[in-house]
Simulated scan of single mutants.
Amino acid sequence: MLLPHVQTLAQARSYLAALADQASTVDASSAYERVLIELDRIHADECPSADTEGLTEDRAVLLAVATSALEELEHYGIDPLTIELVIAMLDDAYALDGT
Rank of each mutant, 00 (worst) to 15 (best):
I78F: 01
A69H: 01
C47W: 08
L90C: 09
A66E: 01
L70C: 03
A88T: 11
V65P: 01
Y15I: 05
I87V: 14
H43D: 13
I42V: 15
D27A: 13
T56S: 15
V61L: 15
A28C: 04
H75C: 03
Q22A: 06
S29E: 11
A31H: 05
L16W: 03
I78Q: 03
R13A: 06
V35T: 07
A20P: 05
L62H: 12
D79M: 06
Y32Q: 04
A88D: 11
T25V: 04
R41T: 12
L70E: 01
Y32K: 07
L81C: 12
R59D: 06
D58G: 11
I87C: 00
L85D: 03
I87S: 00
E71F: 01
L85T: 01
A18V: 02
M89L: 15
P80I: 11
A10D: 09
H43K: 13
Y94A: 12
H43V: 02
A60F: 13
A95F: 12
H75S: 12
D91L: 13
E84R: 00
I37S: 12
A23Q: 06
A95T: 13
A12E: 00
V65K: 05
I78P: 01
Q11R: 10
A44W: 09
E46C: 08
A31E: 10
V86M: 05
R13H: 06
A93P: 02
A10G: 08
A28M: 10
D79P: 02
A69V: 02
T25C: 02
L63E: 07
D21L: 14
Y32W: 05
H75L: 13
P80A: 09
P80N: 00
G54V: 14
L63K: 09
E38W: 09
A28R: 13
R13F: 00
S29P: 04
A95S: 14
D40N: 15
A66Y: 05
E74C: 06
V65S: 08
Y94C: 04
S14R: 10
I42M: 12
A60G: 06
A12G: 05
L36Q: 08
T52D: 10
A95N: 11
L16D: 04
A64Y: 07
C47P: 00
